[in-house]
Design a protein around this nucleic acid. Structure first.
Length: 783
DNA sequence: GTTCTAGAAC
DNA sequence: GTTCTAGAAC
């Protein structure tokens, strides 16, 4: 072994001979997992400093020779040598996905335990650190570090025990990291650590361990014992005595008598055992089914099992029975996901295939790894789409069915499986809404509360979608006409994702789905509250205490309580605002005063007419930032807008456009966007006309940035379309978007703070997201 | 909406 | 020590 490649720390009191005898079976391989800047090297240094146990740090950057990074095989051979010499090993490299970890998990054979320390710190923390360091061994520092961290995080796959780890410690913050360092520093010459998963986001676990408080000691319940002989001995494991809160609803939707507090020192397996012991209906309980099967699936995103976020699971359309070219299909999937991903809010899209060797999944994964797609919003999953929750722990409230033109059960594949799993009611409910489907179209069918799909899997809607057919054995074969085929496949995904957006945003989604004209007379499709008895009974069922705890929180979050009940009721956001004029603080009256009395504010006013006033924003957030104020009293925000204001909205739009075009004459490099804040701080409906440079000293904080660059900003064109279609604009009725991480509005990269972000956007020339490039959302000089 | 500022983060 | 955020006050 070359002595410059690795950091050794061997206890001076331990001779080689003693190591060979006493340490042989007690060495351990600790594989660090985390992006650049997550603190892997610091972790190693802290563990090794004054440690009793001999450690060897294997660092790929340090193995580097002649300016080039070392290789994986060099790391493996150094690690093997160290283990043979009786030293435990710290693998200090990103190890971000399973494939990168696999070889290191074979080190030393079965007798050597493999531990994982998963440094899962917020992206912005890692970026910030990586950018600031000046002495990195791999020369990864400064500006390029942010891009690298972003890229590495795209590939992140959560470590799982099933990979071969006996123990995983996830560290989500500095406190957790300190605890982990303490754990390994306290691991004496012959000590061992309990097996299992410690920390949140245990993949496949039904229990979300809540917020870890590593340092706060709480006595464990009398009926549970730590694996450590001495539970007070923090050197065994600093997490050993922590209690965490567990959300009952998330443990087992059908059983509420599970212990509410589970001590953190229990491993994932122990928690599962405990659940089994209190559950009387193991065979039918989804939680237990999942526990039994959770190692069969390989997704890095099973955490959604414990999160009540809306999700659409969809199979690849047309690539199986309809023989569509896989590469072309995967291109279209990625393209359409990119187009819709910003409309999802906290919702997710999951591409599902039953085969672990699925070529289409592999192709999509390969392509998304090269794109800037938020891996929490879109990921792939290997599993049966009809048993995602019960067997895979993945909760998806909407599943897509790649169906046939007759919308009939049978045939094979996904269609047969979904009709079969849902029971005969799906066929009748489908028939109520449509009897046939054209390629490229989709139809939404709510799932009855009595359907096994709802009871067992938590599925509330099936979206049938029909793709193009390239198989001469099937109807409507396109005979290899891929120009047409690709267009139809694009339309199919647009219909599907549009339908999903309509389900999760019932007030009226911003996209126009491809509604099959032949079906328009029937009551169904995407957004309509509908009159089907099924829907009403489905909602009634939610009032029953059993079977539905999971879904209650879900619907509350989505605000869909009203949407699926009888259609005479209005969506909740309308009800709330009607006749309940919001009270506005004095500081929030400025725009109202200007709109009512423009003559008193002549120096700020650019244009006045009977219905609008145009002003320069007093605190512009970009080089050019105008406001078009409505002059109707009582029209304070989008919540007050309805169909009668459509002509005013159009007029505000055109006045805004006129001013943007005037400003473009002076500066052709500007790009404008026009829109409304979902929940404005200032009274009086006002349209922002803002240049996309965001070059302004008045843009100071996260709220400023996110109010113009997330879904909180409602493009004028979309608002107008929604009001003309639904009579009301779709409202994002919470302000969570304002607290989201700071992402570049062009390339979508994450930045740790406002100064860094502002520095980035001065030079980012990436094209705007495709959605913004459509429907005239961006206004720019065409020459 | 902004300003101010304590204290967290670096 | 400086930078940055986030909450209170207005």
């Amino acid at each position: 072994m070359e002595n410059v490649e690795i950091d050794h720390l061997t206890s001076p009191s331990t001779s080689k001979e003693e190591e060979g005898n006493s340490m042989k079976n007690k060495v351990v391989v600790v594989i660090l997992v985390g992006p650049p800047g997550s603190g892997k090297s610091t972790f190693c240094e802290d563990v090794m400093k004054d440690a009793d146990r001999p450690w060897t740090r294997i660092c790929q950057d340090k193995i580097a020779r002649g300016g080039r990074a070392g290789t994986r095989s060099q790391c493996l051979s150094s690690a093997t040598s160290a283990l043979n010499e009786g030293s435990s090993v710290l693998i200090d490299r990103c190890n971000i996905d399973k494939e990168q970890r696999a070889d290191f998990l074979k080190l030393g054979g079965d007798e050597v335990e493999k531990h994982c320390v998963f440094l899962d710190l917020p992206a912005k923390v890692c970026i910030s650190r990586a950018m600031k360091r000046t002495d990195h061994e791999g020369k990864l520092q400064g500006g390029k570090a942010a891009a690298v961290v972003n890229r590495v995080l795209q590939k992140k796959e959560l470590p799982e025990l099933s990979e071969g780890f006996t123990r995983i410690m996830r560290c989500a913050n500095e406190e957790h990291v300190e605890a982990a360092i303490g754990t390994y520093r306290g691991l004496g010459l012959v000590g061992t650590l309990p097996s299992g998963y410690f920390g949140q986001k245990s993949p496949g676990s039904k229990v979300q361990l809540g917020i870890m408080r590593f340092m706060k000691k709480v006595d464990p319940p009398a009926n549970l014992q730590s694996k450590s002989d001495d539970p007070q001995d923090m050197s065994q494991d600093k997490v050993s005595l922590q209690k965490v809160s567990v959300n009952k609803e998330k443990i087992s939707p059908t059983h509420s008598d599970v212990e509410n507090d589970v001590p953190l020192w229990m491993s994932q397996d122990e928690v599962s055992v405990q659940k089994v012991s209190v559950c009387k209906e193991e065979d039918s309980c989804p939680a237990h089914s999942d526990v039994r099967n959770n190692e069969k699936l390989d997704s890095a995103h099973k955490t959604s099992a414990t999160e009540n976020v809306p999700a659409l699971a969809f199979p690849s359309i047309s690539t199986a029975d309809f023989h569509f070219d896989l590469e072309k299909a995967s291109n279209i999937i990625v393209e359409k996901v990119e187009e819709y991903i910003n409309e999802l809010g906290n919702a997710r899209l999951v591409l599902v295939d039953i085969s672990p060797n699925s070529k289409i999944l592999a192709s999509v994964r390969r392509k998304i790894a090269q794109r800037n797609i938020d891996s929490s919003k879109f990921f792939t999953f290997v599993g049966d789409i009809t048993q995602l929750y019960s067997r895979g722990g993945l909760q998806c409230n909407v599943i897509a069915n790649a169906t046939n033109w007759r919308l009939k059960p049978g045939g094979g594949g996904v269609n047969a499986a979904i009709f079969s799993a849902a029971g005969p009611e799906l066929e009748s409910a489908t028939k109520e809404r449509a009897t046939s489907l054209q390629p490229g179209n989709a139809v939404v069918v709510p799932i009855s509360s009595t359907s096994p799909l709802f009871i067992r899997e938590g599925v509330t809607h099936v979206v049938h979608v029909l793709g193009p057919n390239m198989n001469p054995q099937r109807p409507d074969c396109l005979k290899n006409d891929y120009v047409k085929g690709c267009n139809v496949l694009r339309k199919a995904y647009s219909s599907l994702f549009g339908a999903f957006v309509s389900i999760i945003r019932p007030e009226g989604a911003s996209l126009t789905p491809n509604i099959d004209k032949s079906l328009e007379t029937q009551d169904h499709l995407y957004r309509s509250p509908g009159k089907g008895h099924q829907k009403v009974s489905g909602r009634e069922a939610l009032d029953q205490p059993q079977n539905n705890k999971r879904y209650k929180g879900f619907y509350k979050e989505l605000g869909t309580e009203v949407f699926y009940s009888d259609s005479k009721q209005e969506p909740p956001n309308i009800e709330r605002t009607k006749g309940m004029s919001k009270t506005w603080a004095s500081y929030a009256q400025a725009l109202h005063n200007m709109a009512m009395h423009p003559d008193r504010h002549k120096k700020d006013v650019i244009e006045v007419s009977d219905d609008v006033v145009v002003i320069n924003d007093l605190y512009p957030k970009a080089q050019k930032h105008l406001l078009v104020l409505a002059r109707i009293k009582g029209l304070d925000s989008l919540a007050d807008v309805d169909k009668e204001h459509l002509s005013l909205l159009n007029r505000m739009h055109h006045i805004g456009l006129k001013h943007a075009e005037n400003l473009l004459k002076d500066n052709e490099s500007l790009i404008f966007r026009m829109g409304y804040h979902s929940v404005p701080s200032m009274r009086q409906l006002h349209l922002h006309v803002i240049s996309q440079d965001f070059n302004s000293n008045h843009l100071k904080n996260k709220k400023h940035w996110n109010s113009f660059t997330t879904l909180f900003f409602r493009d004028s064109v979309d608002v107008i379309e929604e009001v003309s279609r639904n009579g009301k604009p779709a409202l994002i009725d919470d302000e969570s978007h304002l607290k989201m991480e700071l992402r570049c509005h062009r390339c979508r990269s994450v930045h740790p703070n406002i100064p860094r972000l502002k520095s980035h956007i001065t030079s980012c020339q990436a094209p705007f997201p495709s959605k913004l490039q459509q429907n005239g959302r961006l206004i720019f000089c065409d020459r």
